[in-house]
Nucleic acid binder design. Structure first.
Length: 734
DNA sequence: TAACAGACTTGCGTTTAGGGCG
DNA sequence: CGCCCTAAACGCAAGTCTGTTA
């Protein structure tokens, strides 16, 4: 896959189709049509009821139609239990869709005969590095070229003070110049101060009342605290959702006293408005605080960071990411989360597990409390953990992305993507070949992989329907999520050709809609047709595939290869290609940055990174337009002034004119950027998908100051990349 | 060996702070 | 110099993938 060639749309109208391989726009208006196959399949024998079935059943119930006379093949459990792959019984002719495959049941499929692995195993680790890493002295670190470099560009260096402070926080550890630890060992020594707990609940003042059925009611502290949570969400549309309110009420009533529970039954009769008003008032008061008061708060926060924000790991001071334990509150899932509105309980020291070095000081729990457990597990990277009360999932306090432990992993991620670059040709050949495999599961695997590669889809693990919103990724796509269109198009020689178009429309991670129409290879199209045959809309498209199987296969192709590596690889290679295409060396810095952002934007589009169009967007766009208009006027005036000016005046006028002209240019660029960015979010791809070495190399090559594209946080996280990508004439690294 | 638990990355919306502007 | 508004930081939900268990 070369350039970003697909087109995602957030809207619901028709959209332009782009040919992925050739980039030629086909522009085909395809309108929504009913599914070709509308029939649904009854469940055959129901063996063990699993989540998958539950899910599908539920969906069918919702969607209504649910019958058909198709007899599903014996469940794959039989195939699976019957030992290895059911070769032969899986040919195209006798392919029968798996009924609701129980993903969980049929996880382990026979392993593909793997092609020879020729990759260099990375991460070969030498023996223990018991020797204590030497701390970089502050003086030494200051003189490091890599660090001083970035500051050099800034005009007004925030003097000493700031620099000093940063040294206090974290020391610079050039781990990428050191040997790695043995596999599995994450640290040798680890010391930290534990978590910072949420501030205690502050009761409402006596004049602020909760009312029930129009009457004032004094609540117990616990009940009142939760009432405050709801008051805080009053303006939000959450509070209009039935599930939210039902869940909230259910959990709220749990903490009520008997008397309260007796009385408070109906959320509609609850009046939180006074509490809401009080909260808003408090916010205003905070905002209106004097400078001194604000400074004091800031200093207190900084003091907390100094204590809890640092861990000492193998002798190095490293930033901790999220040392504040999440305060209690109401759970707000995204999309149609079934558990929205439930209460997240307050986390106490007794809930918290501490992980630290054996020989270091154990963090002290708050007075009168004790930890749930203290352990010394150096095979994991977390410092503290607890179980969150809504979903029962573990939460962790971990290190900041600037730390060695995170950085090294990130570096490895991009190294894996680079290795994929070398193998991608062969892998594509392989899956293209597999499009026509006799084994249907191989075909499904190949077809899914094609989408993962071409469209950067996520893997799509199985999800529990009761615990999460209904979202999917590639492997969990259902028939209802795609539509097939075939139509004729004219090629250059005016010859009629078949065009095969697939439309995707589903909710992905965070319930963000993925909508895209792409033209695909004929084989893929035909395969999809087969996979959809005789299935209900709520059946799995790839009924003989799951993420574990797919990843097993990928690992057989390349060491460390998983589905998500494709996303990383395609994001990075896309940025690089777009940069090559879009950068004009003659441009000024602002224009180059626009090019960078445009390249970045292609990546974001590929990965479907969206953001809600903010309410103020149009308004602020208009403001910008006005600014541009005003500036134009100024330029004109300056131009006139320039013409009439003489002598010394002339030079001055010229300067003014040039300056204004430049400002106008800048404004126009920012308008373009802003507009193109309306609903696309660049941040995620920049932070998580694009190999930072590409950006660093580009900045050096085109003399764009790195801080124009990388924030301070980026530069801290990607210190390794900044240091590694050295020579200014180095070719792109990817 | 399927299911579950655990660990860690990714991603969006919200909050905050600092850079540009009058 | 202060204000305002946006970009950056933060918070935490929701993914991926691996390791463990029954």
């Amino acid at each position: 896959m070369s350039v970003v060639s697909n087109h995602h749309s957030n809207g619901n109208g028709n959209s332009t189709v782009y040919d992925t391989n050739g980039n030629d726009e086909i522009k085909k208006e395809v309108k929504d049509e009913p599914m070709a196959s509308d029939s649904e399949v009854p469940f055959g024998e129901l063996m063990k009821r699993d989540k998958k079935e539950k899910k599908q059943k539920k969906r069918k119930a919702e969607s209504g139609s649910d019958e058909d006379d198709y007899k599903p093949e014996k469940r794959k459990s039989s195939a699976k239990n019957g030992k290895k792959k059911d070769v032969g019984s899986d040919s195209e002719d006798d392919y029968k869709p798996e009924k609701k495959k129980s993903k969980k049941n049929n996880k382990k499929k026979a392993q593909e005969s793997s092609e020879d692995d020729d990759e260099e195993s990375e991460g070969d680790v030498s023996e223990e590095d018991v020797k204590p890493q030497k701390r970089k002295s502050k003086g030494a670190e200051k003189s490091k070229p890599s660090t001083s470099k970035k500051d050099a560009g800034g005009k007004k260096e925030p003097p000493k003070k700031k620099v000093k402070k940063e040294e206090d926080i974290e020391d610079i550890w050039e781990w990428w110049k050191e040997e790695k630890k043995p596999a599995g060992v994450k640290w040798n020594s680890l010391q930290h101060c534990g978590p910072l707990f949420a501030p205690p609940y502050i009761p409402l003042p006596s004049h602020v009342h909760f009312k029930y059925g129009g009457e004032k009611m004094k609540l117990t502290l616990e009940t009142e605290e939760i009432a405050q949570f709801y008051a805080g969400v009053l303006d939000h549309e959450y509070s209009t959702k039935e599930a939210f309110n039902k869940n909230f009420m259910k959990d709220w009533r749990k903490v009520m006293t008997v008397e309260e529970r007796e009385r408070i039954h109906d959320l509609k009769k609850c009046d939180f408005r006074a509490i809401d008003a009080y909260q808003k008032e408090q916010r205003e008061i905070r905002k209106a605080m004097t400078k001194e008061e604000k400074l004091k708060i800031k200093e207190e926060k900084e003091a907390e960071v100094k204590i809890y924000g640092i861990a000492i790991i193998d002798g190095h001071r490293q930033k901790v990411a999220n040392f504040r334990i999440e305060p209690p509150g109401v759970f707000r899932g995204r999309g149609g989360h079934p558990k929205m509105g439930l209460i997240k309980k307050r986390i106490m020291p007794e809930d918290v597990i501490i992980n630290c070095g054996k020989d270091t000081e154990i963090p002290k729990p708050p007075p009168g409390h004790k930890w749930k457990e203290v352990r010394h597990d150096n095979t994991v990277t977390w410092l503290c953990s607890w179980t969150e009360s809504v979903l029962g999932q573990n939460k962790y306090i971990m290190l900041n992305p600037s730390s060695k432990i995170k950085g090294e992993k990130d570096f490895e991620k991009y190294e894996t993507a680079r290795r994929l670059k070398k193998k991608i040709g062969g892998i594509r050949e392989r899956y293209t070949d597999d499009f026509k495999s006799k084994e249907m599961r191989v075909r499904q695997r190949a077809t899914a992989l094609y989408f993962i590669d071409k469209l950067a889809l996520r893997a799509g693990n199985e999800k529990d329907v009761d615990e999460a919103a209904d979202t999917v990724g590639c492997c969990s796509l259902r028939v209802e999520h795609i539509k097939l269109f075939d139509s004729a198009k004219l090629n250059e020689d005016d010859k009629k050709e078949k065009e095969f178009v697939v439309e995707f429309d589903f909710l992905g991670k965070d319930s963000i809609r993925y909508f895209n129409r792409v033209s695909v290879e004929k084989r893929v199209y035909k395969n999809l047709k087969i996979f959809m045959e005789g299935k209900a809309p709520s059946d799995d498209l790839f009924d003989r595939l799951d993420t574990a199987t797919l990843n097993d296969h990928l690992r057989s192709l390349m060491d460390g290869l998983t589905v998500k590596v494709f996303r990383t690889y395609n994001a990075s290679i896309t940025l690089q290609e777009q940069l090559i295409k879009l950068t004009n060396p003659k441009d000024n810095v602002a224009a180059k940055i626009l090019s960078y952002n445009r390249a970045n934007r292609q990546v974001a589009i590929l990965c479907n990174h969206q953001r809600a169009v903010s309410k103020g967007f149009d308004e602020s766009m208009q403001k910008l337009e006005q600014k541009i208009k005003d500036k134009k006027k100024e330029v004109k005036e300056a131009e006139a002034a320039l013409k009439s000016a003489r002598g010394a005046e002339k030079e001055k006028a010229q300067k003014k004119y040039d300056r204004l002209k430049e400002q106008l240019k800048k404004l126009k660029i920012s308008r373009t950027d802003k507009d193109e960015n309306k609903q696309i979010a660049l941040g995620t791809s920049k932070l998580n998908y694009i190999d930072p070495r590409i950006t660093v190399a580009w900045c050096k090559k085109f003399e764009v100051p790195l801080e124009k594209v990388f924030t301070k946080t980026h530069r801290e996280k990607f210190r390794w990349a900044i240091d590694m990508t050295n020579s200014s004439d180095e070719e792109y690294v990817f």
